[in-house]
Amino acid sequence: MDTAERAELVARHTEEVVTEEELHDLFEEQDEPTAYIGYAPTGEMHIGHFTTMRKLADFIEAGLDVTVLIADLHAHLDDEKSPFELLDARSTYYRLAIEGMVESAGADPDAITFTRGTDYQLEEPYTLELYRMLANTTISRAQRAGSEVVRQSDNPKLGGLVYTLMQSLDVAALEADIAYGGIDQRGIYMLAREVLPQHGFSKPRCVFAPLLSGLTRSDDEGEADKISSSDRSSGIFLTDDREAIEEKVQAAYCPAGEVEDNGVLEYLHRLVFPVLGVRGEDLVVERPEEYGGDLEYGSYDDLEADFVSGELHPADLKPAVAHYIDEVVEPVRERLLERPEVLAEAYPDHWG
């Protein structure tokens, strides 16, 4: 695989790469560059996390050395989204869930290095560098960088401000050439590109994944809601069974011929087709012969074209989407439900 092919593999199905030229140069300079993604173990993981997890399969195929950070301290610093006493249990759950998603997406979890924030964030030289960054960064700059990630308020807690600098410093501490995350992380990694060179570290390349919308819509704005761990109807969770997935997809906003704010199409575009692509499979929509018989799609663009034209109706599409999402989620669900004690310890209010 040459440089252009490796760079294309890393960049495909993403929202943005900063910058593509830097990414290309990286593969010219190094045989095995490093990449990392961090997850703060807060609420239960849902299908939206698959948009980032399935991308790791591309990273591994492109020859990247991949690290997944379970950012346990971050989970507590962000307005105590995870109580301190639950950090160990939730970190265990996140690793179990992430391993399941990576495997379901077609990659080997053993090819990934896992680490926790508490493995290195409490010791020098990390703490010393963090103090130096704190001394040089204004409150407004830290707030702006974390505005899409950290819970905001008129009277923010210091933890949320420190959070953004720690995430920037994690890139250097983990010696990552590529910082990878959802597009909501952009502000933090732009801060990293700005401040890390001032402290003697390299400027990271950044790869951003798109975010999945929820399946519900706001009554007042009419726009798709974000998936929320506190609202299990807003999206598909990794422990949802086939019946729950079918119910959520059937109830989802999916007007005939409309693409905008259509969560069903978004799930297909961002998750189902990329996973099927790795497997070398097409998507089949089953229809009665009286309505034209089955439809088969090798790409999302072809399916969207039929949907917009009216050839493909939501009533036929939704059962197929539910089937393929369940197929992707099933091995992760089984992995988690085989460890009920992990779920109970991590989320005692729901599983205890």
Rank of each mutant, 00 (worst) to 15 (best):
A244S: 09
L283R: 03
P314T: 13
P197D: 08
Q30N: 12
E21S: 10
E247M: 05
A75S: 06
R116L: 12
L86Y: 02
D261S: 04
T3W: 09
R116Y: 14
Y297I: 08
L191T: 03
Y39C: 05
A105L: 05
L64I: 01
Y267R: 05
A89L: 07
E289R: 14
F114L: 07
E15T: 05
E304N: 13
L77W: 01
V149G: 01
A35G: 02
A322H: 09
F84K: 07
G38A: 10
E16F: 04
D108K: 07
V272Q: 00
I98Q: 03
V17T: 07
Y253F: 09
Y253D: 03
P204W: 08
R287C: 08
Y189A: 01
Y253Q: 03
A320D: 08
S229E: 11
G38M: 08
R232K: 12
A209F: 07
T19Y: 07
M133K: 12
V259T: 09
Y131K: 11
Q30K: 15
H313K: 15
L86D: 06
P288G: 10
S213Y: 10
T34R: 00
A7F: 02
Y131E: 14
V66K: 03
R186W: 05
E260Q: 09
D2G: 13
D219L: 13
L23G: 00
Y267I: 02
E32Y: 07
I112P: 05
S228L: 09
T19P: 01
D154A: 10
T34C: 00
L23V: 04
R95P: 05
M53I: 08
G200R: 06
G235H: 03
A75V: 04
E32W: 06
L312D: 10
D316E: 15
V10D: 01
A135Q: 15
D282G: 08
Y93H: 05
V249Q: 04
S234Y: 04
K203L: 06
A145V: 04
D219Q: 14
T137G: 04
D326R: 14
P156L: 01
E44G: 08
A172H: 01
G159S: 03
S147F: 08
I70Y: 06
I236M: 06
E290Y: 11
G100A: 05
G280Y: 05
L64R: 00
V249S: 05
A320N: 10
M190T: 13
H350D: 15
V328C: 15
L212P: 01
E221D: 15
E260H: 06
T52Q: 12
L337K: 14
V278W: 06
E289L: 13
F201E: 02
Y131P: 13
E289V: 12
S228V: 11
A135T: 13
V66W: 01
L268H: 04
T19M: 03
G182T: 03
E29R: 12
R144I: 08
P314V: 12
V272D: 00
Q152E: 10
R95S: 03
D72R: 05
P314I: 12
L56P: 00
T127K: 13
L212K: 02
R141Q: 12
G310L: 10
D110Q: 13
G48E: 02
G106C: 06
E345R: 11
V17H: 02
V285R: 01
E338L: 14
R335T: 12
I47V: 11
V195L: 11
F307D: 08
A172T: 02
S153H: 05
K203N: 06
P288V: 11
